[in-house]
Design a protein around this nucleic acid. Structure first.
Lengths: 276, 276
DNA sequence: AAAAAAGGTATTGTGCTCAGGCCATTAATC
DNA sequence: GATTAATGGCCTGAGCACAATACCTTTTTT
C-alpha cells in the first residue's frame, strides 16, 4: 500500500448555488501549479546534472567507476564543456562523485556518504519534504501501474529477460552486482509494458524521488533487506508470468513502498548526522 | 482497454553467456532517451505556449473567449511581454487563437478547425504519429490509475464534488458548459486521489497528447458521443463511490480510449482535408 | 625526460530574455 | 466628431546563460 499524504484539500461543500462558480471551485482544488503560476524553466546545466545523478542512482555508474570525460560528455550530450563542468561540479558539491586530475583523472563515483552529502541533504531536501512525500506516493502508484501493465502485455521473451535478471540478483555477491541486477529486473518489467513512454515516466519518477542520491539499492550491506527484495522480486515475477495484474500491481506497490521507507530512513539518518 | 502500440522491442534471448553483458543488453532495451541522448531544454516561450495550449485544451478558455492581455499574462507568469508575445504568436500560427487589435483586442480562442490548423496538424503531428500512439496509450493507463486510486482514497466530500460535476454535465446545454463540467468531473476525481502530483501528471499527459488543440470535448455537436460520455462518467462515479478500484480503473481506461479514438479520427480528418 | 590525457581557466561571440518606451489600431466615451 | 483609453505591434539596450576555442596545469605513461 502506498503512503497517503495528508494533503487532502478540503473539497467544496455542495450547495445549490450558481453552477459554474461551483465547478470553478472544484476545478481550482486540483490546480496546484496552474496555468497562472509563474514560469520557471530549468537550465541546461541542471538538466545535465539531473541526468548524471539519475545515471548514478540507476546504477549505470557504480561506486568507484569513472564517468565519461568532460569532452566526451560534452560531445555526446551536445552541450558545451563548460556546462558539463558545471553539472559535474554540482555532483562533486553534494558528494556524489570525486574529481581526480591527470591522465587517469575524471569524475569517480564515491563509495558512501560523507559529511558533505549529509549537509547537502539537510539543505536541499528538508525544505521540500512534503513534496517528496507526494512524490514517493506517486512513484509507488506508477510502479504499481507498470507491474500491472506488464502482467497484461508481457511476452515470453520479456519473462525470459526477467528470469535472467532474477538469477543475476540471486547470484550477486557485491553491492555493485546487486545494483546492476536490480536495475536489469526493473528494466525488463518496463520493457514488458511495450511502451517506451512508460519507461521514461518511471525513470523520471526515480530522478525526482532520488534527487540524485544513489539510494535505490537495498540496504547498506544489510542482508535482511537484500533477502526481502529478492523474495519480492520473485513474487512480482510470478504474478507477471501468471498474468495476474492485480497481484503484480499490489506487490510492486509494496515493493516500492519499502524503497521509499528506506529512503526516508536514510534521509532522517542524514538529518540527525547533520544536526550534531 | 488501452491500445497496445506495436513497438515491442525484441528482447534479448536468454543464453548462459556472461552475466553482466546480458544484463546490460536487457537494460539497453528500455533505455530510449537515455542518459547519453542530447540535451535540449525548453525555452521560456515554449513553456508559456504549452501552458496556454493546455489551458485552452482543458477548457479554461472556451471558444470565443479572450485570453488575458499580453501585459497581464506577463505580470501573472512573471515573464517579459516579449516572451508572452512569442508564445501567443505560436498559438496563432497553429490556429488555436485569433488575434484582434484595438481596445477590445486580444487573443480569442477559435471556434473550430481552419485550413491553418489542418496544415499545422499535418506539419506538426504526422511526423510524430508513432510517438503519439505511445502517448495515447500511456494516457489511458495513467487515467486508469487515477480512477483506481480515487476509488481507494475518496472522501465523502470528493464524492459530493463529483456529483455536482455530473449534474452540471447532465444539465449542460452548450458545448462550453459541457467542457466546463467535464473538466470539473475530472478535476474532482483527481482531487480524490489526495495527491496533487497525480493531478500534475494527468495534466501533463493531456498537454502532450492534445498538443494544444481544444479536442477534449466529446463530439462536435454529436449528441451520441455526449450521451456516451455522460453514461461513462456516471459509471465511473459509481465505481469510485463503491470503492471498486478495479472497475473504476477499467472504466476510466475505456473512457479515455474513446477520447483517444476521437482524437485519432480528428487528426485523420484533418490530414485528408490537408491532402486535398 | 618527453608525451599523452585528463581537468582547470580565460576569452569571445551568440542567442534568449527582460525592461521600458513609443507607435498603430480600435472601441468606448464625451 | 473629437477625445480618451485599452489593446496589440514594434524597437532598443542591457544582462545572462551557453557555446566555442585556445591555452595552462596536473598526473600518468612511455
Amino acid at each position: 500500500m502506498c503512503n497517503v499524504p495528508g494533503v487532502h484539500p478540503d473539497a467544496t461543500p455542495p450547495t445549490t448555488d450558481d453552477l459554474s462558480r461551483m465547478l470553478g471551485q472544484v476545478l481550482g482544488d486540483t490546480a496546484q501549479p496552474s496555468v497562472l503560476s509563474p514560469v520557471k524553466v530549468q537550465s541546461v546545466a541542471t538538466e545535465v546534472a539531473d541526468r548524471l545523478m539519475t545515471a548514478v542512482a540507476i546504477g549505470d555508474y557504480l561506486p568507484g567507476e569513472r564517468l565519461p570525460g568532460e569532452r566526451e560528455l560534452a560531445t555526446i550530450l551536445d552541450v558545451s564543456r563548460a556546462t558539463v563542468r558545471e553539472a559535474i561540479g554540482r555532483l562533486q558539491a553534494v558528494g556524489i562523485v570525486e574529481i581526480k586530475r591527470g591522465r587517469t583523472g575524471g569524475a569517480y563515483v564515491r563509495a558512501s556518504w560523507t559529511e558533505a552529502t549529509a549537509s547537502a541533504v539537510r539543505r536541499t531536501l528538508l525544505p521540500r519534504w512534503p513534496e517528496l512525500e507526494q512524490l514517493f506516493d506517486l512513484r509507488c502508484l506508477v510502479e504499481g501501474l507498470v507491474a500491472r501493465t506488464a502482467a497484461l502485455r508481457r511476452t515470453d521473451e520479456d519473462l525470459a529477460a526477467m528470469r535472467v535478471a532474477l538469477d543475476g540478483y540471486a547470484q550477486a555477491r557485491t553491492l555493485g552486482q546487486e545494483q546492476v541486477a536490480d536495475a536489469a529486473f526493473h528494466g525488463a518489467v518496463l520493457a514488458a509494458t511495450g511502451n517506451p513512454k512508460i519507461s521514461a515516466l518511471s525513470r523520471d519518477m526515480l530522478t525526482r524521488v532520488s534527487l540524485g542520491f544513489p539510494v535505490e539499492p537495498y540496504g547498506e550491506d544489510d542482508p535482511e533487506d537484500y533477502q526481502r527484495a529478492l523474495i519480492e522480486h520473485r513474487k512480482i515475477y510470478e504474478a507477471i508470468a501468471a498474468g495476474d495484474a492485480e497481484q503484480a500491481g499490489s506487490l510492486a506497490e509494496e515493493h516500492f513502498t519499502l524503497t521509499s521507507d528506506m529512503m526516508r530512513a536514510m534521509l532522517e539518518r542524514a538529518q540527525e548526522r547533520a544536526a550534531r
